[in-house]
């Protein structure tokens, strides 16, 4: 995946069964963002692989004050890349599901 400066990882082990997964996101390189975030903490959240889109979550992070609206796309892309990898792994492990 492209290095967006925003890192997204699984916050718990993925057993491949739940549609809702816990993810952790943090800024690795603030220079890649248009506006430097106020906090440099890791944000943990749940994401539903079936019902939600990464862009929706990114928008909620902007509305919650974690990121500036000009960075909503880069945050959404970072989440989307990680989610795509998780879904690809699930499909490899258990084809036909997910």
């Amino acid at each position: 995946a492209e290095d967006t400066g925003v890192r997204v990882e699984l916050a718990e082990e993925d057993n491949g069964r739940k549609s809702s997964i816990a993810l952790r996101l943090w800024v690795e390189d603030a220079k890649k963002l248009k506006v430097k975030p106020k906090d440099n903490g890791a944000i943990e959240f749940t994401f539903d692989l079936e019902k939600e889109t990464p862009e929706d979550v990114a928008q909620e992070m902007v509305e919650s004050g974690f990121f500036h609206e000009n960075d909503v796309k880069i945050v959404g892309k970072s989440i989307r890349d990680r989610v795509a990898l998780i879904q690809w792994r699930r499909e490899r492990i258990c084809p036909g599901h997910g």
């Binding site: 943090w26 690795e28 390189d29 906090d39 944000i43 943990e44 959240f45």
Partner: peptide
């Protein structure tokens, strides 16, 4: 370690905790 919880109006819960230094990229 201070942990902050932010609940978005849509109901999603964001839990903020410090990033361990080992996970920060060298700048």
């Amino acid at each position: 370690i201070a942990v902050t919880q932010v609940v978005h109006s849509a109901g999603r819960r964001f839990i903020v905790s410090p990033v361990p230094e080992s996970r920060l990229k060298d700048q």
